[in-house]
Design a protein around this nucleic acid. Structure first.
Lengths: 242, 242
DNA sequence: CGGGATAGCGTGGTATGCAATGTTCGGAGA
DNA sequence: TCTCCGAACATTGCATACCACGCTATCCCG
C-alpha cells in the first residue's frame, strides 16, 4: 500500500486531535487549529474563506469543511452570512472549560490507574524526567510540551475513546490560554510536585488519590490563569475590533 | 427581531443539540440526527449523499456539511472515498460512553447544586411528578421523555456551557441505545427512587451525595443496557452487511 | 476449473460559478 | 451639519459539474 495522504501539517505539535478520515478538509482544519493555537489567528479574528483558501492553497470547499469541523469543536464561531471568527471565550467560559478539563482528566486518571501498562508508566516517568530537565535548564517551551504530553499520555492510558476525544476538544480550546499562561507566569514550577504525586499514585493504582490530585491540579492552573487574564485585560483593553 | 430560522425539524424531541448557526447544513444535520435516533437510519446503514439529498430536498453541499457535523459528533463515521455510515458503537465503546456520561452528569449535578435556582428546582419537581405519573399509567415513552428531560434540566442548571455541549454530544450518541433499552427492559422503575434522592440532594445542595447518586445511577443504566445488548445480539446475529 | 487482472460503474471529493444577504459608504433631505 | 435612505460591494451560502478513487463483475489465461 502506498502512502495514504500527503501530511500537509508539519507543525510542531503532531496532531492534537485525530481527525476522522484522510480528507483534505480535516487536514485544513488541523492547519487552522495550529494557526489558532499559535496565535497566528488570534481570538476574535475573522476567518475569511477566500483569503485563507488562497493562503493555504486549497479551494473554498475543503476550507468550509474545516470551518464546520472547528465550529463543532468550538474553536471558531460562525454567524450566518457573516462568516466565522476565532472563538474568544469569556473568562466565565474559560473557567467552565478548565473545570470540565479537570473532571475529564481526573476521570481519565482513574481509568488509567486501572488500565495502564508498565510500559506506559515508564513512558510517563521518562516524560516526567524530561520535564524536570526542561525546568532545570529554564526551557519553558519544552516544559510546556512535556506537561501537555504527560496529561495526554494519561488520558490515552484511560483506554476510553470517547473520553480521549472530548478531552482533546476541550484541551484544544484551552491550549492557547494555557500556553501564554505558561510562558508568562512567574512561579511556574508548582506543578512539578503534583506530577510526581500523580506518577506515584498511578504506580500504586490509587484511584481516589490521583483523582483528587488532578482535579486540584487543574484548578490551580485555573487560579494562575485568572491572574494572567487580569494582567492581560489590563494591558490591552480590547482587541476584538479589526 | 423576527423569527431566526424556519425550524425544519418538527420532531417530537426539540433540538437535542443546539447548532451554532442558522445554516441549512445544521438543519440537515438535525434532521439526520433525528433519523438516526429514531432508527430510521439504523447503525451501520450507509449515508448516501445523493439519495439523502434528494430525499431531504437539498443539494449535496449542505448534506455534506451535515455529515461533517455529525462526524465531529461521532454519530456517523466516514471512511475516505467510501462514504459515511451510521456509527455502530461496539459494546466497549458504549460502555466508555456511558461511563463518560455518568461522569459528566455527576459533575453537572454538583454544579447544579451550587447554581440552581428555586425555579429550576420546582421545574424538576414537576418533571419528576410527570415521570411518576407516566410510570403509573405504564407510559414508557412518556417516562423516557421525562427521564431525559430531568437529566437535561440538571445539566442545564450547571450553567457550564462547555459541559452542556459535550453532554449533549455524548447523550446523542447514547440516545438510541437508551431508548430501546428503556422500551424493552422489564424492571423499568428502578430509577424512580434514585431520581427522588437526586431531587432531595439538589434541594439540600448536597454536592457529594448527588455526585455519587448520579455516577451510580448511570452505571446501573449500563448494567441494564448490557443484558439488553446481549439479548439483541442473540436475536439478530449480525446486521451490518447490506 | 480456478485465479487474477482489467474495465466499467457507482460513490464520494473537489472546484467553480451563481445567488442571496449583510455591510458600508455616499448622497440627499431636513 | 446630522440623519436617514439607497445602492454598490464584499462575503458567505448553495448548487452543479467534473474528477479521482474504490468496488465488482466479467473475461481471459494458466
Amino acid at each position: 500500500m502506498s502512502s495514504k495522504i500527503t501530511p500537509i501539517t508539519d507543525a510542531a505539535e503532531p496532531s492534537l486531535l485525530a481527525p476522522d478520515g484522510g480528507r483534505k478538509g480535516a487536514a485544513v482544519a488541523e492547519r487552522i487549529r495550529v494557526m489558532i493555537i499559535q496565535d497566528e489567528l488570534p481570538p476574535g479574528a475573522p476567518v475569511r474563506e477566500r483569503a485563507l483558501a488562497e493562503r493555504l492553497e486549497v479551494s473554498r470547499t475543503p476550507l468550509r469543511e474545516a470551518i464546520k469541523i472547528l465550529s463543532a469543536e468550538g474553536l471558531v464561531e460562525v454567524q450566518p452570512h457573516r462568516g466565522a471568527v476565532v472563538a474568544d471565550p469569556s473568562n466565565e467560559e474559560l473557567r467552565g472549560l478548565v473545570e470540565l478539563l479537570g473532571v475529564l482528566e481526573a476521570f481519565a486518571a482513574e481509568l488509567a490507574c486501572r488500565n495502564r501498562t508498565d510500559a506506559e508508566l515508564q513512558e510517563l516517568r521518562a516524560l516526567q524526567d524530561e520535564m524536570m530537565a526542561a525546568y532545570a535548564r529554564d526551557d519553558r517551551l519544552g516544559y510546556f510540551r512535556c506537561n501537555q504530553a504527560i496529561h495526554l499520555a494519561i488520558v490515552k492510558a484511560s483506554r476510553n475513546r470517547a473520553l480521549i476525544h472530548h478531552h482533546g476538544v476541550v484541551n484544544a480550546r484551552l491550549y492557547r490560554a494555557r500556553y501564554i499562561c505558561n510562558l508568562r507566569t512567574r512561579r511556574w514550577a508548582s506543578a512539578l510536585q503534583e506530577h510526581e504525586d500523580m506518577l506515584q499514585a498511578l504506580e500504586a493504582r490509587d484511584e481516589a488519590k490521583i483523582s483528587g490530585i488532578l482535579r486540584n491540579h487543574v484548578l490551580q492552573a485555573w487560579d494562575k490563569m485568572v491572574v494572567m487574564l487580569e494582567e492581560a485585560a489590563a494591558n490591552l483593553p480590547r482587541r476584538r475590533a479589526s
